[in-house]
Amino acid sequence: MSSADFLIQGIIRAFELIFSLNPYILSITGVSIKVSGTATILATFTAILLAFAISFLNFRGKQALVTLINTGMGLPPVFVGLFVFLMIVPVGPLGFLDIVYTREAMILAQYILITPIITGICLASIKAVPQSIIETVHTLGGTQKDAVIETLKEARFGMITAILAGFGRALAEVGAILIVGGNIAYTGSVGGIGEGLSKTRTLTTAITSETSKGDISTSIALGIILISLVLSVNILANYFQRTD
């Protein structure tokens, strides 16, 4: 078999797996979306609160917090994974949570990874609202609260883009969740693949393990789903950027 045939066979088998709604593939996709979705929701709440506080309130350590967020935007995922792992192992300070190799640990790692990203983009969106908008609110008789509300409304599309960027980053991330989640599938075999349903296995971590096992068609199927999801998120983000 030539390398081209091998690839074509792999792609055909990948589409078969996707369109037959293979339970193994579906369970992995489900875990990916659940883990990244939950992390994004939690990170969004924190990020909006942080962006609001930094933009509108004066407090000690504000500049240090901004520096921390900026640094956090470039955190290497494996470092975050290692950090969270050391926190949650039985002898670690958060060992009592007993969440090593669970989806909760993966959510925690992704939360740490994407909160600075969402906060940073939200901050930039708020900062981009012209001072003249705030002054206009005041000249028309609005209060400081009205000015804050109007600023957030003006920055809304940028903030939605921030959330989508965070979700996209979480979906595509592999290093941190591999360390804290362990890439675990239940024992057994579903859909003729020889693996059980996913426990902590996501699209990205599954691609690494399936490729190392030599199951290229499953890897391609997972890759197609991952790319489709990330692409959809990016198309949405672009739509909101254009709307702004």
Partner: peptide, 10 residues
């Protein structure tokens, strides 16, 4: 107060 270049809300 009407500014020379008015700020328009989106």
């Amino acid at each position: 107060l009407l500014f020379q270049t008015p700020a328009i809300f989106n």
